[in-house]
Simulated assay, not measured.
Amino acid sequence: MTRRVLLLATKDTIAHRHGSIATGAELLATIPADRLAADVAVEDVLAEPGWDMSPGTMLALARRARAAIAEDGFDGVVLTHGIDTLEETAYLADLLAGPAAARGAIVLTGATRSLDELSSDGPRNLAAAIAAAADPALAGAGAVACLNDELHAARWVTLADAAGVAAFSSAPHPPLGRVTGGKAGEGVELLAAPPPRPPDPHGDPETDIALIKTYPGIDGALLTAVVDAGARGVVLEGTGLCNVPASLLAAISDLTEWDIPVVVASRCRTRPVALDALPLGTGMAGQVGAIGARDLAPAKARAALMVALGGGGVAAARDYFDRL
């Protein structure tokens, strides 16, 4: 039985060519028919460039991908996306997939070279992504990124090289798998177990979340300023084991009392532990109410806080991150 895949095309580099932008159908036409591993339906999506993708658009894409599997009966979804923020949209789609993740894969792909460049990587990446989305082996894995024939779990994937075709990495984790070819009948070879599934989402995600990079001497007034401007939550990019300057501790305490969650992530790789589980002298922000991002990168912690706030304020966010 032929598998059915929905292609959601948001344009960006994978569709760029001199003087024009390819539609989803034109992108699909770059793949020879005998290299298509599924029956593919196409929807063109009006979206900002990947480097300026709005939270509202990311949420709309995540919801459409989930509905395509859960309601429309597609076996998988492929989403073409600019590489700059592909990992954020992938993780948001993963967090919102809910039970649909058990029924089919959501695969994001893109390109570092335009469609009319010599040796463009777009058509191959698209063919591989379709093969991956059509393969039942990925059911239960949630959202993944597929580029350069590699599959990366949304929780682990990061853009490591914006100029090369091997642009994404899961380090320090291994790639989830690889696509053994783009021909019909070929598909996914799994190389590692996927990360645990996140909690099922509740309520509508909050889109107004501030992400602030901390630095020595930062003024705590920056935190209250973004809240005054409308932010419903704040993610701080700290250092080391989720450390932030002491100048922020009073503001973190105040925001927590106002039911505005403050999540602390690190610019470094960290272990998936809570702030209060860190050694004495680190993670001080946890003592004044901050929530640890565990091993999430700052941008992904922002996506997780968006979803967590669908269930309430600080208490709901703390419970959500404890279960990630």
Results as ranks from 00 to 15, higher is better:
residue 2 T to M: 14
residue 5 V to N: 11
residue 11 K to I: 00
residue 15 A to L: 12
residue 18 H to C: 03
residue 20 S to Y: 08
residue 20 S to L: 07
residue 23 T to E: 01
residue 25 A to H: 07
residue 28 L to M: 13
residue 29 A to D: 15
residue 36 L to I: 10
residue 36 L to E: 03
residue 48 E to D: 11
residue 51 W to H: 12
residue 54 S to R: 13
residue 55 P to Q: 08
residue 55 P to I: 14
residue 56 G to I: 01
residue 56 G to M: 04
residue 56 G to H: 09
residue 61 L to S: 04
residue 63 R to E: 15
residue 64 R to G: 06
residue 65 A to I: 02
residue 66 R to Q: 11
residue 69 I to D: 01
residue 70 A to S: 05
residue 76 G to Y: 04
residue 81 H to Q: 11
residue 84 D to E: 11
residue 86 L to C: 09
residue 92 L to Y: 06
residue 99 P to S: 08
residue 101 A to K: 03
residue 103 R to P: 00
residue 104 G to C: 12
residue 105 A to I: 05
residue 105 A to C: 12
residue 107 V to T: 07
residue 109 T to I: 06
residue 110 G to R: 01
residue 111 A to V: 08
residue 112 T to E: 13
residue 114 S to D: 14
residue 115 L to F: 11
residue 121 D to F: 12
residue 121 D to W: 11
residue 123 P to E: 15
residue 125 N to Q: 14
residue 127 A to R: 13
residue 128 A to F: 15
residue 128 A to R: 14
residue 130 I to M: 10
residue 133 A to S: 13
residue 134 A to D: 10
residue 135 D to I: 05
residue 136 P to Y: 06
residue 136 P to D: 04
residue 137 A to V: 15
residue 139 A to C: 10
residue 143 A to Q: 09
residue 147 L to D: 02
residue 149 D to W: 05
residue 149 D to L: 09
residue 150 E to K: 10
residue 151 L to I: 09
residue 151 L to V: 11
residue 153 A to M: 03
residue 154 A to G: 05
residue 160 A to Q: 09
residue 160 A to E: 06
residue 162 A to K: 11
residue 166 A to P: 00
residue 167 A to P: 01
residue 170 S to D: 08
residue 170 S to K: 13
residue 170 S to I: 04
residue 176 L to R: 00
residue 177 G to Y: 11
residue 180 T to A: 14
residue 180 T to F: 02
residue 182 G to Y: 04
residue 187 G to Y: 10
residue 188 V to P: 06
residue 189 E to R: 13
residue 190 L to T: 10
residue 191 L to Q: 09
residue 192 A to M: 08
residue 195 P to E: 01
residue 195 P to S: 00
residue 196 P to A: 01
residue 196 P to L: 05
residue 201 P to E: 00
residue 204 D to H: 09
residue 205 P to E: 07
residue 206 E to V: 14
residue 213 K to F: 10
residue 217 G to P: 07
residue 218 I to R: 02
residue 219 D to W: 04
residue 219 D to R: 07
residue 220 G to W: 05
residue 223 L to C: 05
residue 224 T to I: 04
residue 228 D to I: 02
residue 229 A to R: 14
residue 230 G to K: 12
residue 234 V to C: 08
residue 237 E to W: 04
residue 241 L to S: 05
residue 242 C to V: 01
residue 245 P to C: 05
residue 247 S to H: 08
residue 251 A to K: 08
residue 255 L to M: 03
residue 255 L to R: 01
residue 255 L to G: 06
residue 256 T to Q: 09
residue 261 P to G: 06
residue 261 P to V: 12
residue 261 P to H: 09
residue 262 V to C: 13
residue 263 V to G: 04
residue 264 V to K: 02
residue 264 V to N: 02
residue 266 S to F: 07
residue 267 R to K: 12
residue 272 P to T: 02
residue 273 V to K: 01
residue 274 A to L: 09
residue 275 L to D: 00
residue 278 L to P: 06
residue 280 L to Y: 11
residue 283 G to S: 15
residue 284 M to C: 14
residue 289 G to K: 06
residue 289 G to M: 07
residue 293 A to L: 03
residue 295 D to R: 02
residue 298 P to Y: 13
residue 299 A to Y: 13
residue 301 A to N: 04
residue 302 R to D: 10
residue 302 R to F: 07
residue 303 A to M: 15
residue 308 A to M: 05
residue 312 G to E: 11
residue 315 A to G: 12
residue 316 A to T: 13
residue 316 A to Y: 09
residue 318 R to K: 14
residue 320 Y to F: 15
residue 321 F to G: 02
residue 322 D to L: 05
